[in-house]
Amino acid sequence: MTLALYVPVGSPVHRLPAGVKLLCLAVLAVLLFARPTPTVAGAALVGTLVVGLGVARLPVAVLARQAWALRWFLLVLFVVHALTTDVATGAHTVLRLLTLVLAAAVVTATTRVSEMVRVVERLCAPLRLVGGRPERVGLLIAMALRFIPVLIERADRIRAAQAARGGPPRGVRALRTTVAPLLVQLLQMAHDVSEALDARGADDTPVRRPGRA
């Protein structure tokens, strides 16, 4: 899993405020789609690689992993566009999407999750006017990033246990038989996590919990 991509290097890109980096990413996304020319897309890709590999000094593997993970999607996108329009349009579409994904990877690899979360909290600050708690939104995002790998690990464990007892290791049937036990485990985990959040000061009101000994 490459959800937690942060690569600790002391570069100027790392030192930039997370809000600025996210704004640059948004501007790039708008530019790529508002000015859909191969020149803009090509320049954006080169710029992204220069910033990511040159200025931020990220390992090539970090960006290559992101591109590789998307290979089938990009291929399908290219083929569909090539068939429905022409090859040049397909290549251009793939180039734009690839640039955007790599730029997002540069931002993620140079920004701690906590900094991203603080930006989200600032953006959600108006929620306070209606009694909302922006820090809860931030915690939600951080926890989603934290628990997706855990969820995948639990699912793998269930599949391995089923396969060890003669169950199907993959395929639709394996997926179907994995879902129910995974849900049970996730509910138990959600209960445990809520206790941990209480214990670490997230909520000051005690909750009576269902039985455990």
Partner: peptide
């Protein structure tokens, strides 16, 4: 179940 943030220091 106790670790709620993605990275160690956080």
């Amino acid at each position: 179940a106790q670790i709620v943030h993605p990275t160690v220091a956080e």
